[in-house]
Nucleic acid binder design. Structure first.
Lengths: 251, 251
DNA sequence: CACCATTTTGACGGATCGTCATTTTTTGTC
DNA sequence: GACAAAAAATGACGATCCGTCAAAATGGTG
């Protein structure tokens, strides 16, 4: 009897919870294209209200301000990236091939979610960042840290296996920082600048791939790119690890 | 007589012109800290009006919208960067030392104008970018292109002098893209992420420097970092080329 | 001083964010 | 099912801020 009552109560609460979750998903689903279309100003709370079947107050029950919606959009895709990184890190191969697998994941991620950078760049502007809740900022940081952690783990594996020898003056995190800079900078430039085509770089993604292999050659992470065809590794990772995701886009 | 008249007219016009220039400078001078303080929303046109001794309409005679002010702020610092790059490229030394000099210039630039990135990131958001005038966008592109050109020139010098051999499958622009990615990504991460200190990287600027030398080692741009103390080159460039600028900051 | 051209002014319209008093719905109880 | 209390939803409203434009001020000229 008590059990039944409890059960009943829980079911009701669960249903409520689920409804709230679903509504939140709907809000985000509607907000994303609005943001993609016109950025921070394009995401119009009045228009969002009129497009959804909920009133303003209801939406503000879910998200205390516009910025909270935007950071949640960022978190949604960041979580997808984390999943892709983790999947890539399981690739069977040398430590350097596994780093290449992460690079592949990063590239496929920006191709699958080409608008993610825009969202993240907006969020990182202090004027926006400061209005978001500490809670959601934590979630975002956590995602970032875990992505970094995956890469760091592979660097340490490389050292442990003897493929990589950093010497005594270098810590693995410096290499993570280097790869991260190359990737973040490269994808940002690709996304926001016309100068690349002006420069005559026809396939920027391929060039970026070759650039991080140049960096890895520079620290002599074996086997070097002169010994292994890392383009082929890229193709293999695309197929073997991300075959499913890839059906959606043309690489 | 005609000459005198002309002279007089010209003087009046010149004075007018000068006054307009000066006013424009004042507007920007007042707008910059406001933007730095609170970003896009922090730059408040009403407040700007009340702080300056000019009315709203007058300000809108200079800049047709808020975004035009912001892009002009970006252009102001971009021009300083171009000057620093050009100065650095004249450094006497091997081609690789000259690239290191550009790296030094880039680092000193972000230290001298730590808020520039914020301004540039804001401008690059499509929602802002689209509202700026084609004219000012051209000026900005031009600055960027000339900076890239300086770097490209040194790469080609390196090839010509035999310090660098890219082979037949690589064009110099790919290397420019690589260095640019590393720098842009690295400085962005330094500016907007706490993860670096979390990672245990105590001196991110030094690490970034070492990272681009790793990249340059990877393409075997001679002399390699194992043969030359590029930290010492950095110091020399700071002193010999940028001694004046450096008095303002602590490196 | 009178007249025209140019520049400056700031009140105002319009857009948009977030609030909160009011209304509606849900829950719990007899 | 009827009713009260709690919870949730509503949307009109206040506040803020951008950019405009009719009117006023300024400056040059005969």
């Amino acid at each position: 009897m008590t059990i039944r009552q409890n059960g009943g109560v829980m079911n009701t609460k669960d249903r409520k919870q689920r409804e709230i979750q679903e509504r939140e998903a709907k809000i985000l689903e509607c907000a994303r294209p609005m943001f993609i279309e016109g950025g921070y100003n394009g995401l119009n709370m009045d228009r969002l209200t009129s497009m959804l079947e909920y009133s303003k107050g209801t939406i503000y029950n879910h998200f205390s301000c516009k910025e909270e919606i935007i950071i949640t959009l960022a978190i949604q895709t960041l979580e997808k990236r984390l999943t892709m990184f983790e999947k890539a890190s399981l690739f069977q191969g040398t430590s350097r091939e596994r780093i290449a697998a992460i690079g592949t994941a990063a590239e496929l991620f920006v191709k699958l979610y080409p608008d993610h950078f825009r969202v993240e760049q907006t969020i990182r502007l202090d004027s926006i960042w400061d209005k978001t809740s500490e809670e959601r900022r934590q979630v975002m940081s956590n995602c970032e840290h875990r992505c970094i952690g995956v890469v760091g783990g592979i660097v340490r594996d490389g050292i442990a296996s003897g493929d990589l020898n950093l010497g005594e003056t270098t810590v693995p995190e410096e290499i993570v920082f280097g790869l991260w800079s190359l990737a973040f900078g490269g994808y940002s430039i690709i996304a926001t600048s016309n100068s690349l085509t002006d420069l005559g770089i026809l396939n920027p993604f391929e060039t970026l791939r070759r650039n991080y292999h140049r960096f890895l050659d520079g620290i002599q992470w074996n086997p070097l790119s002169s010994e292994v065809d890392y383009d082929a590794v890229f193709e293999r990772v695309c197929e073997e690890v991300f075959g499913n995701e890839l059906q959606q886009i043309s690489v």
